[in-house]
């Protein structure tokens, strides 16, 4: 993914504060942590980088495809290789069961028969611990489990670039640990993704639990979007008002 001086006109933003003129490249095998306070534009950045929001100016390339000038077929291929897990319940389809939610992209793609779709869907539900809940609707399960169902759905087409839009917000400690381990596993190569490492982008308002040396960091606020090669560089140079993202423990 690549953003080249990309940004949005104010009327597109609907009043949301958003840093413009962003230059950012996500390579294969990258793991990006994007920190930002509330209403800093993390979701807008996720939508822009994942191709769901088209830039008003500049350029956005998703899997090498220009999201504005690329053909519908190329854009659709790029979309199949990219996944987004949304926050606050994952935006599941309320009228469908958990099983149908997860199976929907497979059925729409039409590349597998129904028995293969059922097998893969059940494997994804097993991974997130939702096999017993497969015939319930999203409104019948907790927000934590809805978020897990959204993860299973996003992995259905074996994406190699996955965006997590503030998915850990509001989760308890044990659930956060599960998500952290799962995301790291996806980055290293998961059997459900054919053991292929995925590029990961996680946006969050709490970077404290992501102090790993091999992650790349970026911070977003009204003044701009700044990238850092590692956490050490970020700790040394980030603005003081953004340090609360790290909840410093006497450092």
């Amino acid at each position: 993914m690549e953003l080249q001086n990309a940004g949005l006109d104010f009327e597109d933003m609907q009043g949301t504060c958003f840093a413009n003129g962003i230059d950012w490249t996500i390579m294969e095998d990258d793991f990006w942590m994007i920190g930002g306070l509330h209403h800093s534009g993390k979701t807008t950045l996720t939508l822009l980088a994942s191709g769901l929001l088209r830039p008003s100016f500049g350029r956005a390339l998703l899997q090498g495809v220009d999201v504005i000038e690329g053909s519908d077929r190329e854009y659709r291929r790029a979309r199949e290789e990219t996944a987004v897990v949304f926050e606050q319940g994952g935006r599941l389809f309320q009228q469908a069961t958990i099983f149908d939610n997860v199976a929907m992209p497979l059925r729409y793609q039409g590349a597998m028969g129904e028995p293969e779709i059922e097998e893969r869907t059940l494997a994804l539900l097993d991974m997130v611990g939702l096999h017993p809940k497969r015939n319930t609707t999203p409104s019948m399960i907790s927000r934590n489990l809805q978020q897990r169902a959204a993860l299973a759905r996003s992995l259905a087409l074996c994406p190699d670039l996955i965006f997590f839009d503030n998915c850990l917000a509001g989760l308890d400690g044990r659930e956060k640990s599960w998500w952290r381990e799962t995301i790291l596993h996806l980055h290293q190569g998961h059997p459900l993704l054919n053991d292929k490492p995925a590029a990961i982008v996680v946006t969050t308002a709490d970077l404290d639990h992501w102090r790993f040396p091999d992650l790349k960091f970026a911070l977003i606020d009204a003044s701009g979007f700044t990238t850092y090669e590692n956490i050490k560089e970020m700790l040394e140079t980030c603005p003081s008002h953004l340090k609360e993202l790290l909840h410093p423990r006497g450092n």
């Binding site: 769901l52 979309r79 199949e80 987004v84 935006r91 389809f93 259905a156 087409l157």
Partner: peptide, 17 residues
Amino acid sequence: NARASGEIEALESLAID
């Protein structure tokens, strides 16, 4: 309701028109 709750963007994110 689907548009307001973001389900349409979720569909697009899954390569579903």
